[in-house]
């Protein structure tokens, strides 16, 4: 009976994952491996293709209602162009199109703002997923906030991995593939933002988790009882223990020949914390050095006094 409960929990979290994160790893890998027929992503590899990509997405804009229905086909935080749909001041396409008359410095900032807009939307999706974890909504509300504040960037980085390969990443609802080299060619410190995520993702992808494994792993990350400032750690640890058991069983059944996968996965959580710390420091540096930068209020809330 206990194993049956753990399997039921795995199924429940997988269903919630599919509900809130429509661009699954399965879909992303199909796009990346060219198995989607004619629907190949548009490739952005230089400034010219970036301009063309902007045009391309402009033609394919999704009506707001449809977008709300989809909530997000884009799973990770680097969702360039997504701001276009919201009409928010953070949107990339919501602003004027790129022209030679603009100061060159604005391009990176505009792109960065569009990423922020998509990230904020992704935080909302992760919050909905967290609320679907049995017992999460019964925790002290302040502890729920703390778990999200500390967990959400880690979750977003894990969710970015399926969208990436060694050469680049899918963005904009899987419609665009942006090359790693292009991201590296942006001016500093923007050029330094994605490289650590690529390095992590390439290694993480070798574990070959599928979407049902991912759902459990994300729940484990969210339910970390060692986040600073938690008021009532015990119920969080109890919830996490159950999800950990479910994950362990899931990996045994789903990857019977992959030895020590559970242990390897848990080790990734240490790497993740370092990546998030570095990411937050980079954002703080940007805030100091970029005169025109504004940080999305939700991301500001999350990153303030984080590390």
């Amino acid at each position: 009976p206990e194993a049956a409960d753990l399997r039921a929990l795995a199924r429940h979290l997988y269903e919630a994952y599919l509900k809130y994160f429509p661009l699954t790893k399965a879909k992303a890998r199909a796009i990346l491996s060219g198995k989607t027929g004619d629907n190949m992503p548009f490739v952005i590899h230089d400034m010219k293709s970036l301009m063309e990509g902007e045009q391309f997405i402009n033609c394919k804009q999704v009506p707001i209602q449809e977008l709300q229905h989809q909530t997000s086909t884009l799973t990770a935080g680097l969702g360039g162009f997504a701001g276009a749909h919201s009409g928010s001041e953070y949107g990339f396409l919501g602003m004027s199109s790129i022209s030679g008359e603009e100061p060159p410095d604005t391009l990176e900032l505009r792109f960065f703002h569009s990423c922020q807009s998509r990230s904020a939307e992704a935080v909302r999706e992760v919050t909905e997923f967290a609320k679907s974890i049995p017992g999460f909504s019964d925790l002290d509300l302040n502890d729920q906030v703390t778990l999200l504040k500390y967990g959400v960037i880690e979750v977003l980085i894990i969710m970015m991995s399926p969208l990436m390969n060694k050469d680049g990443t899918l963005i904009s609802y899987g419609q665009i593939f942006m090359t790693r080299e292009f991201l590296k060619s942006l001016r500093k410190p923007f050029s330094q933002m994605m490289e650590p995520k690529f390095e992590f993702s390439v290694k993480f992808n070798t574990l070959e988790l599928d979407d049902s494994d991912m759902a459990l792993f994300l729940a484990v990350i969210i339910l970390s009882g060692d986040r600073p400032g938690l008021l009532n750690v015990k119920p969080i640890e109890q919830l996490q223990e159950t999800v950990l058991h479910s994950l362990e069983l899931q990996l045994k059944l789903n990857h019977p020949v992959s030895l020590q996968l559970f242990a390897k996965l848990l080790q990734k959580m240490t790497d993740l914390r370092q990546i998030v710390t570095d990411h937050v420091h980079l954002i703080q540096l940007l805030k100091k050095t970029e005169v025109d930068m504004c940080l999305h209020p939700l991301l500001q809330e999350i990153m303030k006094d984080l590390y």
Binding site: S88, A120, L141, L148
Partner: peptide, 20 residues
Amino acid sequence: KEKHKILHQLLQNSTSPVDL
């Protein structure tokens, strides 16, 4: 609570998307 107003809002609103 004020420090994390939007997160509180996201956690308490059921499914309706908060204006981000």
